[in-house]
Design a protein around this nucleic acid. Structure first.
Length: 468
RNA sequence: GCCGCCAUCGUCUAGGGGACUAGGACGCCGCCCUCUCACGGCGGUAACACGGGUUCGAAUCCCGUUGGCGGUACCA
């Protein structure tokens, strides 16, 4: 059996949005699940908006998501010659024609014939070469789109305008380019957002006109699958307003790529049982088009945070440390330098912070005390370092200075003993100590923190507190 | 306006005529654990948009209404 051939075809009009990322992911999962081929095609026929910066943004986003492709990237703009060739064939074969009709003409037509009749242009007389190229839509017929997730949808031609497939200057438009490019690339499955469902009959019409002329006649029509759209938490179209709307923003907010893949896969697709935490190999193993749903989903960052926490906890410490370093380099270069200075310390801090963070962004506020010293938090000092707090820290210092081996069991035994002897609540001892060592009221476990800091540094910070 | 798609807890979803007094997850609330923050455990809150059919029986099938979204560009 011929391999499944899929494509992801973003238009570089800005950052890769979450919806686009989801489409890329589904194509990728499908390709990997079926051992097929994934083609990356950049749809840059819109010269105004397609900039090199936008292209690299998309490539960066895919790379970060760890979604690779097997062929391409193919730039649609580089296929101009082929497009003109097929366009000529369509023109000569009588499937398309030049029309001088302007937008105003079309509007006038609709006023005249009512909104239920699609626009049919007049072919420009003689051999004049000006005017846009329109595809001839056969009247009185209809085109049925067979869609794997939606079933059959019939589009009656009466309602369809003869679509403009090329500008007056001969450059082709989206619905033409897509059909020809998919045909030439022998794409077997077109998987994309539902916003393209209404475009599909036009593309099918282009495809069939070309095939009628013998162009790609041996290539079967692709199978279509239109994915439900993604909306913001308010049900409206996803935008910056909703927080992170692009892959870059997700990365900068400290999410793990594996968690983003996991979460995105759950939007419009379900494993069937109640599996929620799914590793990427599991996603590949279980993903099928048949389980894609038809209704739109909302992007909810709260659930993504939860899922990210699960993925953080699954990562081996060395790997999580690498991710953390990458993240800090991106968002806080100074912190990155400090964190990278001592690998052992970094991994120690990561190990005792791992189950307390949900995203990479949560790490530094919790563990900065190991790398850049005591923080300035007035409220924490006032709350915990009053008379009794200071007294308690002084007691703790004596304990910590005298234990033999400065390790976790000894430290916890010493401090627990102190709590018992003083007959106070544990927090009355631990919180002042925490503020003395971290400067803040939040840190990893106090015993673990002290052990990692080491006796010398622990006592030094305590002394600084007692003096100050 | 016209054409089309969609419609189960606040959110993601399971469900595809009787197994549904509708299941799971996130969130939220309460309790437990507890040195902070988290994690974890237990319990709770909460939905079949509405109206007609079809059927012995409908969340599941059909029609309509409403709502949301998409398309209707010499954008993609």
């Amino acid at each position: 059996m011929a391999p499944m051939r899929l494509r992801f075809a973003p238009s570089p009009t800005g950052a890769l949005h979450i919806g686009g990322a989801r489409t890329a992911l589904f194509n990728w999962l499908l390709a990997r699940h079926n051992e097929g081929v994934l083609l990356l095609r950049i749809e840059d026929t819109d010269r105004e908006r397609s900039t090199p910066e936008n292209v690299s943004q998309i490539l960066d986003a895919l790379q970060w998501l760890e979604l690779d492709w097997d062929e391409g990237p193919v730039f649609q703009s580089e296929r101009e010659e082929r497009h003109r060739e097929v366009l000529q064939a369509l023109l000569q074969g009588g499937h398309a024609y030049r029309s001088n009709a302007t937008a105003e003409d079309v509007a006038a037509y609709k006023r005249l014939y009512g909104a239920e009749r699609g626009f049919r242009g007049e072919a420009t007389a003689g051999d004049r070469k000006d005017g846009a190229v329109r595809l001839h839509v056969p009247d009185g017929e209809s085109t049925v789109v067979h869609d794997v997730v939606r079933g059959d949808t019939r589009f009656d031609h009466v309602h369809l305008d003869d679509p403009v497939i090329a500008r007056a200057d001969g450059s082709v438009l989206y619905n033409f380019a897509v059909a020809i490019d998919d045909l030439d690339a022998q794409i077997t499955h077109v998987v994309r957002g539902e916003d393209h469902l209404s475009n599909t009959p036009k593309q099918l019409l282009v495809l069939r006109a070309a095939r009628a002329l013998g162009i790609g006649a041996e290539t079967p029509e692709p199978v279509y699958a239109h994915l439900p759209l993604l909306h913001g938490p308010d049900g409206k179209k996803l935008s910056k307003r909703h927080g992170a709307a692009s892959v870059q923003e997700l990365r900068d907010a400290g999410f793990l790529a594996s968690a983003v893949r996991n979460y995105l896969a759950l939007l419009g697709w379900g494993a069937g049982d109640d599996a929620t935490f799914l590793t990427t190999p599991e996603l590949i193993e279980r993903f099928t088009l048949e389980r894609v749903s038809r209704s739109p989903a909302r992007f909810d960052q709260v659930k993504l945070r939860w899922l990210d926490g699960l993925h953080v906890r699954e990562l081996p410490v060395p790997e999580l440390s690498d991710r953390l370093l990458e993240f800090l380099q991106l968002t806080d270069p100074e912190a990155a330098v400090a964190a990278a200075a001592d690998r052992g310390l970094l991994e120690g801090a990561v190990a005792i912070s791992q189950e307390k963070i949900q995203t990479l962004a949560d790490f530094w506020p919790l563990a900065r005390l190991f790398f850049v010293g005591v923080a300035e938090d007035r409220a924490a000092r006032e709350r915990w370092l009053g008379e009794p707090g200071i007294a308690s820290v002084r007691e703790a210092r004596t304990e910590l200075a005298t234990i033999e081996r400065f390790d976790l069991p000894a430290i916890s035994a010493a401090l627990e003993g102190l709590v018992q002897r003083q007959g106070v609540k544990p927090r009355e001892v631990y919180q002042p100590l925490r503020v003395a060592l971290a400067g803040t009221a939040v840190s990893p476990g106090i015993f673990e923190t002290i052990e990692l800091l080491g006796r010398e540094e622990t006592l030094r910070r305590i002394d600084a507190t007692l003096v100050g």
